Amino acid sequence: MGAPSGFAYEMHGEDVVISHHGRRATVLRGERAAEFLAEVDRGDPQLLMARVTGNYRRGNERMARQHPRNQ
C-alpha cells in the first residue's frame, strides 16, 4: 500500500476544509478543527488527512476478510 497523497487543507474562518485531488472531502469545525491543526504539524499531514476523511483503508480489506477473527 502506498503512502496517501493528493490531500490539501484550507482555513475558512474557524473551519478547516480538507480536499482530495481538488474535491472537497470533509469540513472540520470547532474542537475537531483545533485538534487537527495541532496534529498536522507533528506528523505526516497526508496520513492525518487520509485518516480524518476515512480515505486510508485501501488495499488491506481483502486480507482482513481472511483473518480468523472475521471468520
Rank of each mutant, 00 (worst) to 15 (best):
V17I: 15
E10L: 08
M1N: 09
G30S: 13
Q46W: 09
M49D: 00
E14I: 01
E10T: 12
Y9P: 03
R57V: 07
S5F: 07
P45N: 03
N55R: 11
E39L: 14
G2H: 13
N55M: 12
G30R: 13
M11Q: 12
M1F: 11
N60R: 06
V52F: 05
H12W: 01
G30C: 05
I18R: 03
R51G: 07
G22D: 01
A38G: 08
D41Q: 12
R62N: 14
G6R: 08
A38E: 13
L37D: 06
M49R: 02
A3I: 00
G54W: 07
H21R: 15
E61M: 09
V27T: 15
S19E: 05
G22P: 03
M11F: 09
T53H: 11
V17K: 10
Q71H: 15
M1Y: 10
A50F: 04
L28Y: 02
Y9C: 05
P45R: 04
G30T: 06
D44C: 13
A3Y: 02
T26K: 09
V17M: 07
G59C: 14
R69Y: 08
E14G: 11
A25I: 08
M63Q: 14
M63E: 14
A38Y: 06
V40F: 00
N60M: 04
G59S: 14
A34T: 08
N60D: 08
A34P: 00
E61C: 04
Q71D: 13
G6L: 05
V52S: 06
A38W: 04
T26W: 00
A3M: 01
D15W: 07
E39C: 09
M11R: 15
E61H: 06
L48F: 05
P4I: 05
D41S: 12
D15H: 11
R62C: 09
L28P: 01
R65S: 06
R51A: 08
Q71G: 14
G59H: 14
H20I: 00
R58V: 15
A33W: 04
A64Q: 13
R24F: 00
Y56G: 14
M11A: 11
M49H: 01
R23G: 01
Y56P: 01
R42T: 12
R58T: 14
H20W: 10
H12A: 12
V52K: 13
G59Y: 13
R51M: 11
G2T: 14
Q46G: 10
E10I: 06
P4G: 06
E14H: 08
S5Q: 12
H67K: 12
A64L: 15
F36H: 10
A3H: 10
V40M: 02
E31A: 12
F7P: 04
S19C: 01
I18H: 03
T53R: 13
N60H: 05
N60A: 00
E61L: 14
R58S: 12
T53K: 13
R29K: 09
R42H: 11
R65C: 00
R42G: 02
N55D: 01
